Amino acid sequence: MTVRHDGLTAEWLGYATLRVAGDDTVVYMDPGRYGVLTGEWEPDEDGVGHPPSRDYRPEDGDVICVTHVHHYDPEGIERVASDDATIVAFEGISGRDVDRDLPPVVDLPYDVVEVGMKESRTVDGVPLWTIPAYNEPGGPHTRPDGTPYHPRGFGCGFLVDVEGTRVLWTGDTDVLPGHKQVDVSLFCPPIGQRFTMNRHEAAALAAVMEPELVLPVHYNTFSTLAADSRAFAADVAQAGIPVVLDES
């Protein structure tokens, strides 16, 4: 489903993949992983709220943002990036993680801009800002020993201005104090609980931020990201904030 908002179209393509397009600009957030762009993804159970898997290769992206190594998928980038795309990647992505053998981002055949947790850039005519994204040590989104899945310095979120409309994808993070001050029109929070803010925390944040529209992502891709998206939408709507689910 394509969501229309303030002159833009937005589409959640599964997992953390978000496509935002204006008349002349296409931006992707965290494309790929787990087969959501190759047609290989399958739900853990029937009827789960999530975009269907498909073989997706538009190669139309002008700017491709990558928040952290867990969401870094070179094949996914290749499927969505145009020939002259620019990759904007968090500087902490080393090109490797414990389970995957990956090329460094700078070795991809595109222009690459590496960014830190709090930066302001204009990339190919697209103003963007990075914001911190992490789990608090000892907080609710940690391993059994209390260490965070995403420690401070592991990744970032992206606020992008696409043809005058500001879109926020927080990345994998708890709700952080700075989120409440972000001026955003389209807010795309993760609600998949274990590794990020859960649906209750995301709904409460939306009520404070007061965006013009909320489109949740990063949930129900697999069982540990299970979330009741309809309950989330009801909570956001009850706070007087427009909300939409893009699950089919």
Rank of each mutant, 00 (worst) to 15 (best):
F232S: 11
S229T: 07
D24S: 06
M197C: 12
N220G: 05
D107I: 12
Y34N: 13
E136R: 10
A85K: 00
Y219T: 05
A234G: 11
T165F: 00
C65A: 11
T170S: 10
G61D: 02
T2H: 06
D161Y: 04
R100A: 06
P103I: 15
L18K: 04
S120R: 15
A233Y: 07
P52G: 11
I87G: 03
D73S: 08
H50P: 12
P242C: 14
G32S: 15
V184W: 06
L159Y: 00
D161N: 10
L168Q: 02
Y15N: 13
Y149W: 12
A133N: 00
R143M: 11
M117C: 13
R121N: 15
G153H: 01
V115Y: 04
G171A: 04
L245E: 15
R152W: 11
L108D: 10
F158R: 05
P148Y: 10
A207N: 04
G47K: 05
V105E: 03
T147G: 09
T170H: 06
E201I: 08
I87N: 00
P211Q: 05
T86L: 06
R33A: 14
L8E: 12
K118N: 12
M197T: 11
H150K: 08
A10Y: 10
A81E: 06
Q238H: 14
S120V: 11
R33K: 13
A89P: 05
G95L: 12
E163A: 05
D44I: 13
G39S: 05
V208W: 00
V160A: 10
I191S: 10
K180A: 13
V214Q: 01
P103S: 12
D99K: 12
V69S: 01
D6I: 13
V88P: 02
V20P: 05
V167K: 00
P189Q: 08
G155M: 00
P103Y: 12
P140S: 14
A239M: 08
E59F: 07
E212R: 08
Q193P: 10
R33E: 09
T224G: 11
Q181R: 15
G139E: 03
E114I: 15
E42A: 15
A133E: 00
A85W: 01
A207M: 08
D124M: 10
D73G: 07
G76I: 04
R143D: 09
D145K: 02
D44Q: 09
D246K: 08
D228H: 02
D145V: 06
T221A: 14
E136Y: 10
E59L: 10
H200N: 10
G35P: 05
R33Q: 10
F187D: 11
N220Y: 02
C188S: 08
D161L: 07
S229V: 11
I77E: 03
M1P: 15
T170D: 04
S229M: 05
A206Q: 00
W12L: 14
D145W: 01
L186V: 14
A16G: 15
H141F: 04
N135E: 01
M117V: 13
E119Y: 09
T130G: 10
G14I: 13
V126N: 03
N135F: 03
T17F: 09
R121Y: 15
Y219E: 03
T2M: 11
I64L: 06
D55W: 09
I241F: 07
D60S: 12
P151S: 05
C65R: 01
I93H: 01
V208H: 00
V160Y: 05
L215D: 01
